[in-house]
Computed example of a mutant assay.
Amino acid sequence: MTDAVSPVPDTEHWSYGSFQFDLDKARRTVPLVRDDGTAATFTVPEFVSEPRDLAEISRIVIAACERWEKRQGVGG
């Protein structure tokens, strides 16, 4: 499980974990963690660094995760 670092703006129960940077490939991986321990990650090019952009992508990933859970019949 990823430790929560700060809340994802405009979401409930989701936080960012510690970002990971791959300098060789010029990309960053953004972990997301829900209060119940559910986790997701996404990777973007290094130039995607504006907090608003990362929050928007995070909300898309969170929505997709929650839709997938509903299709699987998993809680949330």
Results as ranks from 00 to 15, higher is better:
Thr2Arg: 13
Thr2Glu: 15
Thr2Pro: 15
Ala4Leu: 06
Val5Phe: 08
Ser6Pro: 00
Ser6Val: 12
Pro7Glu: 11
Val8Arg: 09
Pro9Leu: 02
Pro9Gln: 12
Thr11Glu: 04
Thr11Asp: 05
Thr11Ala: 06
Glu12Tyr: 00
Glu12His: 13
Glu12Val: 14
Trp14Cys: 07
Trp14Thr: 11
Ser15Val: 09
Tyr16Gln: 04
Gly17Gln: 07
Gly17Val: 05
Gly17Lys: 03
Ser18Ile: 10
Phe19Pro: 08
Gln20Thr: 15
Gln20Gly: 13
Asp24Cys: 11
Ala26Leu: 14
Ala26Gln: 15
Arg27Pro: 00
Arg27Gln: 15
Val30Met: 03
Val30Arg: 01
Pro31Thr: 10
Leu32Asn: 04
Val33Met: 05
Val33Lys: 02
Val33Trp: 02
Val33Gly: 02
Arg34Met: 08
Asp35Glu: 09
Asp36Leu: 03
Asp36Pro: 01
Gly37Ile: 05
Gly37Ala: 02
Thr41Lys: 06
Phe42Asp: 03
Thr43Arg: 07
Thr43Ile: 06
Thr43Ala: 09
Thr43Trp: 07
Val44Asp: 08
Glu46Val: 11
Phe47Leu: 10
Val48Met: 09
Val48Asn: 06
Pro51Arg: 12
Arg52Met: 08
Asp53Arg: 10
Asp53Gln: 14
Leu54Glu: 02
Ala55Asp: 15
Ile57Met: 04
Arg59Phe: 02
Arg59Trp: 03
Ile60Trp: 05
Ile60Val: 15
Ile60Pro: 00
Val61Glu: 02
Val61Ala: 03
Ala64Gly: 08
Ala64Arg: 13
Ala64Asn: 12
Glu66Ile: 01
Glu66Gln: 08
Trp68Asn: 09
Lys70Thr: 01
Arg71Leu: 10
Gly73Ala: 01
Val74Lys: 13
Val74Met: 08
Gly75Glu: 03
Gly75Asp: 10
Gly76His: 04
